[in-house]
Computed example of a mutant assay.
Amino acid sequence: MTTDEPLAWVVDDEPAIIDIVTFALDTQGFRWRSFQAAQPAWQALRTELPDLIVLDVMLPDLSGVELCRRIRDRWSVPILLLTAKGESSDRIAGLEAGADDYVTKPFHPRELALRAQVLVQRPQAHAGAVLESADVRLHLARTEVFVSSSRVMVTPSEFRVLHALIEHAGETMPFARLVSTVWGDIDRVGNRELLKTTVYRLRRKLDAARPGASERIRSVRGVGYIFDPDGAE
């Protein structure tokens, strides 16, 4: 293995699930490290930051949602949430806490592997590539966002949503097209909820950088979203 291979952490208290997840990660060339509780993973983050965290909602010492929230207070590392089938409240809570995507148990290893791969992919761009509209600026190679001169810490999914909207500034992006662009599929139950929660988080962060900046991202009722360069004037 080389150091170019992404490192994933798997945080789950079920050894059988860890085996399935790590098998799936192996197929995509990930290195991995596993934890069976939240606190050891949290402590390990002081000395190492992985490229991806696969995080179960139900953990013995601290909920995965709370761990996700703590991580988001400091880092933008991609988080893939594992939730139980039918527990939509756990999924929503995890997304609101900052998770980038989710997989519902039981899951197919191929699905998890593909979702993990999407989350660690970076835009193909040269070091100085910038995408800009009005006062919002994206540095593509570094996946950084600025509003005016203020840097905004965003998650990978938030970055990709904003990237897609600014690339098509002034054009309404349908829900299905945005989901396909950001997460690579359009058929899963809960996709619109995933997109709406991600946009909600993104708009809050833009407003924190400059009050009113979130007005550049407008909802087109029943259709999708549009980035309006004049929306925050």
Rank of each mutant, 00 (worst) to 15 (best):
V118E: 08
F146I: 05
Q124C: 04
I92Q: 14
L7V: 13
M1K: 08
A176D: 15
R46Q: 14
L178P: 11
Y225C: 09
D90K: 02
I92Y: 03
W183Q: 11
S157G: 07
G94V: 08
G128L: 13
R72V: 14
T47V: 12
H163E: 15
R203K: 15
L45I: 08
V220T: 11
I53L: 15
V189R: 01
G170L: 07
R122N: 04
R201H: 10
D185V: 03
S180V: 03
A134P: 12
D207V: 12
A44K: 06
I18R: 11
L59S: 10
P78V: 07
D4Q: 13
D185P: 00
A41H: 02
G86A: 03
F35D: 07
G170N: 10
L59P: 13
R203L: 09
T181N: 11
R210P: 09
M1V: 13
D73M: 12
H168K: 14
I79Q: 04
R216E: 04
I79L: 15
W183F: 12
L81Q: 13
V182C: 05
P60D: 12
H126I: 06
F35K: 04
T155Y: 04
W75G: 00
V21D: 02
R137Q: 14
A24V: 13
A16W: 00
M58R: 14
R70E: 15
P123F: 00
A116W: 10
A176I: 09
E167F: 00
D187L: 06
Q39F: 01
G29C: 06
P50G: 05
S149Y: 09
V57H: 06
L131C: 07
V11C: 06
W75A: 08
L112M: 10
E14P: 02
R91C: 10
R46W: 05
A41V: 09
R177A: 15
D100H: 06
Q39I: 01
E66K: 03
D19T: 09
R216Y: 01
R122P: 08
S219F: 01
R70C: 09
H163F: 10
S180E: 15
T181W: 04
D207Q: 12
S76P: 15
P156W: 00
T197L: 13
T3G: 07
L80F: 09
S148R: 11
G64I: 02
L67G: 06
T2Y: 01
V223I: 10
L112F: 06
Q117F: 08
W9Q: 03
H168T: 13
M58N: 14
V220Y: 00
V120D: 07
H126E: 13
F35L: 05
V65E: 04
W32N: 15
P50N: 02
H108A: 11
A16P: 05
Q117D: 14
G94Q: 07
E171Y: 07
V220Q: 12
P123E: 07
A164D: 13
D101Y: 03
S34T: 11
I186H: 05
E158R: 00
A41I: 09
R33S: 09
N191K: 02
Q36T: 14
P109W: 00
V189Q: 03
L49T: 15
L80P: 15
A116V: 14
L67S: 05
E87W: 00
D185C: 04
A213N: 08
Q121F: 00
V103W: 00
A113H: 10
L81A: 05
I226D: 03
